[in-house]
Design a binder for these strands. Structure first.
Length: 578
RNA sequence: ACCCCCAUAGUUCAAUGGAUAGAACAAAACUCUUCUAAGGUUUUGAUGUAGGUUCGAUUCCUACUGGGGGUACCA
């Protein structure tokens, strides 16, 4: 719809479309859509903004005769042009099959690699991992909806000096049975212990580096150990992912690129991109105003950055992606700046590469707590806590419901609440973790949206109709029968709902353009708010006008469908009952 | 010391350079014999400081203050 408007204005005014931005005003009084094009062109055309806006508005009205698109076009104060769609146009649009903005019409859709979760072997998943996992999953869903071929990639941290430490610790103090019993718990304990003891005994660090060096040069015993740690860790991670409803196409970690590393080092040296420095090898990035990047340690071992370069080369070569999205915390911003700079020096190009950063999850005291030893909140505990809270509410509202069903619903509601809390606030700043807020099932939350959807579909069920049948039909078709094209749904609330539903695809597109899921979350909340207002105002089942009642049922079916679809893109399910 | 991110209501968060800065939570008052009150309706309340850019700045630029992260052999 925005596209139609944009084209219309461009044709009418003889300006190029990119000059025109059309927004949806926050306040109804400023129209369904609004544009500031007159103000932006005023200077160039040497006219007062308001006067130019009047000229534009008049042109639009004059061209409006055929389609009757606008009910009103208004030029107001500083120079905005506010547009109201006509009821006819609105209902006509609403009656069209929902466009889903499939960008790809050919058989070879563009590929997007979406890297997220990126969990580290031997470390428990905590609230920080949750954020990246959920944001990444939602962005993957959104790109999938828009017609991209999405590769969901869990880039596992399974290589690096810390595994030298872990292997050493295991050799010193580890017991096979203890690891088998509680793999990640035991591995974490070993890691914490050696980190602590290394502070007093500096030799341990050297020994750990030696263990990693051995690993990298192919030592069979160390390889076997790491492989075992990896298998045990992945088993635990996958339990979490399953519960979160997050899936991956690839679980390829850093160790995968181990064979490519000598090649990368050689390429960097041959192309004179890297140079020796203080026994190590670096890439100078003065040109980019960045600190030098270390690509090889003094003992010849590789680094995170080295492996990421190999990773980038491999991805470009193997998948020829249009986009590579790296959903990784803010903390690694410098790392990615350096990575992108080195890639540029190497001539690695062809994909839009984005570091999708997100802020850290801070403790209630505003301090970093995710990695604070021993003090982290494990993901499983968080999930248990919130699902438990949901269970109490579901049970209270459904005293007769069988235990199994209550549990099932509580799981959907609890996990949904957890996800939504992160997705609605997706921005760069750090967020403060707060149990009360996280566990709140009211207000701007997933349960609110789920509840709204369930209530609406309940009306349809009580009317003795199948919701899916209603979703296929639309209110607009109905009105075609009456000669004077009398709107079947005359209430302002109904028009607002129709218009809101029509905005859905634009919002999804916006999310993909900005890589922010918060737009969609906000949209769904606004839609649900409207729907609940409608629910309170109009008692659909009591409507004696059968034609209108049918149209209303179809409207709310469409609203419920949109909520369900939107939540689905955010990775959140809607239960049958709640 | 340098670099990056951030600073909005009592709290947690919104606002592609736009109009009267939005929500949610908390607080106060209403609202279920009526399609699920996890709902709805009211009320109270905010842009860290000082400049600049322009028709217009929460948004862009500069300085300052405060918080977080990072800065060569961790990831």
């Amino acid at each position: 719809m925005q596209e139609i408007l944009q084209k219309k204005i461009a044709d009418a005014l003889g300006v190029s479309p990119e000059v025109i931005s059309i927004t949806v005003p926050e306040v109804d009084q400023f129209g369904h859509y609004s544009t500031n094009v007159a103000m932006r062109l005023a200077k160039e055309r040497k006219m007062a903004p308001l006067e130019l806006a009047r000229v534009f508005a008049n042109t639009l009205i004059a061209n409006n005769a055929n389609e009757k698109m606008f009910a009103k076009v208004e030029a107001v104060k500083p120079g905005f042009i506010n547009l109201w769609l006509s009821d006819e146009f609105l209902q006509e649009q609403f009656a069209l099959p929902a466009t889903n903005y499939q960008l790809q019409t050919t058989n070879s859709p563009q590929t997007v690699i979406c890297e997220y979760a990126s969990c580290n072997i031997a470390k428990p998943m905590h609230v920080g991992h949750l954020r990246g996992t959920i944001i990444g999953d939602a962005l993957a869903n959104i790109h999938d909806y828009l017609g991209y071929k999405v590769i969901r990639w869990n880039y596992i941290g399974d290589w690096g000096t810390q595994f030298g430490k872990l292997i050493l610790a295991y050799k010193l103090w580890g017991k096979k049975e203890a690891v088998e019993k509680d793999p990640i718990g035991e591995m974490l304990q070993l890691y914490v212990r050696i980190s602590a003891e290394a502070k007093a005994n500096l030799q341990l660090d050297d020994q750990a580096r030696a263990e990693f060096q051995k690993l990298e040069s192919g030592d069979a015993e160390n390889r076997k150990l790491l492989e075992w740690f990896k298998i045990e860790s992945l088993l635990e991670f996958n339990k979490n992912f399953k519960r979160l409803g997050v899936t991956f196409d690839l679980e390829i970690g850093e160790s995968f690129y181990e064979k490519e590393l000598p090649g990368v080092a050689k390429e960097l040296a041959d192309k004179k991109i890297s140079q020796p420095s203080e026994g190590a090898v670096i890439v100078s990035l003065d040109k980019f105003k960045l600190p030098p990047a270390l690509v090889q340690k003094g003992d010849g071992a590789s680094l995170y950055l080295t492996r990421d370069i190999a990773n980038m080369e491999y991805r470009l070569k193997t998948y020829s992606p249009a986009k590579i999205l790296l959903v990784v915390a803010n903390q690694q911003a410098l790392h990615f700046e350096q990575l992108f700079a080195v890639c540029q020096l190497m001539g690695l190009a062809g994909a839009e590469t984005q570091h999708i950063k997100f802020g850290m999850v801070l403790g209630p005291d505003g301090k970093k707590f995710a990695t604070r030893e021993g003090k982290l909140i494990k993901l499983e505990d968080l999930m248990d806590e919130i699902v438990g809270k949901a269970f109490v509410v579901v049970r209270k509202n459904n005293p007769e419901m069988p235990e199994a069903e209550v549990k099932q619903i509580a799981e959907i509601v609890g996990i949904g609440a957890l996800k939504y809390a992160d997705l609605k606030e997706n921005r760069n700043s750090d967020i403060t973790f707060d149990w009360d807020r996280m566990l709140d099932l009211h207000g701007d939350s997933a349960p609110y949206l789920q509840y709204t959807g369930v209530r609406l579909l309940n009306i349809i069920r009580k009317a003795g109709r199948d919701p899916s049948e209603y979703i296929r039909m639309t209110p607009g078709r109905h009105s075609e029968q009456s000669e004077e094209s009398r709107p079947v749904l005359p209430l302002d609330l109904e028009k607002s709902l129709m218009k809101k539903v029509l905005d859905f695809s634009d919002v999804v597109k916006l999310c993909a353009e900005t890589y922010y899921t918060s737009h969609l979350a906000k949209y769904l909340f606004e839609l649900a708010k409207l729907a609940n207002g409608y629910y309170e105002t109009v008692r659909i089942l009591d409507d004696e006008n059968m034609e209108r009642k049918t149209a209303r049922l179809m409207l709310i079916a469409r609203v419920a469908q949109t909520i369900e679809k939107g939540l689905g893109l955010l990775g959140i399910k809607v239960p049958e009952r709640i």
